[in-house]
Amino acid sequence: MVKSRSEKELVDGLKQGDKKAFQSLFDQYAKRIFVFAKGYLKSNEEAEEVVQDVFIKVWNVREAINTELSFKSYLFKITFNRIREFFVKQSRENYYKHEILDYAIEFDNRTEESIDYKSLLDLVEKYIDQLPPRQKEIILLSKKKGIPSKEIAVLLDISSRTVEKHLSEALKQLKKELTEDHIAGLLFYHLFLDQKKK
């Protein structure tokens, strides 16, 4: 039997480069980091990356860890910083969805607070995916990647006018679908009311 070591002993071991101690700490905290990261990043892949990055960082700076402070709290700070980087990047990548929603839906105070926005974001993605291939390709290049129409024209070997036409068709179509689906988007509001009644 191996005597289980206290967290303080493990962190001391880690500081001295003990790989076993490092792995025990990994065993203990990997899942917490994963769950926390997934809650904010909504992606298994990125949550996994956060866990990896946090432990690689912990190993690389092990000598500077202060064993007097809570290790759990220390891990929280590293995890938060990594999640923050991913979150900011994600929100930049998702910016086009907000933009399209802004174009398609007129939000007011009520809808701001009551629409299930997560579902709405997923819906935009789904509708973009259902566009005719050419429209989908062009709207993603233009809105998601921010490539100017002129460059898209060169890239796809078509005229700028055709690019613009596809783009406005795509936006028109999205606006149409998103209004039709307004009711589905309100679900959150109803759930919310029901809960209050109880």
Partner: peptide, 15 residues
């Protein structure tokens, strides 16, 4: 946000 159901207002406050 953590449980994956949030309003637009909430999303932007967290962002």
């Amino acid at each position: 946000f953590f449980r994956g159901k949030y309003s637009r207002e909430e999303y932007f406050s967290i962002q």
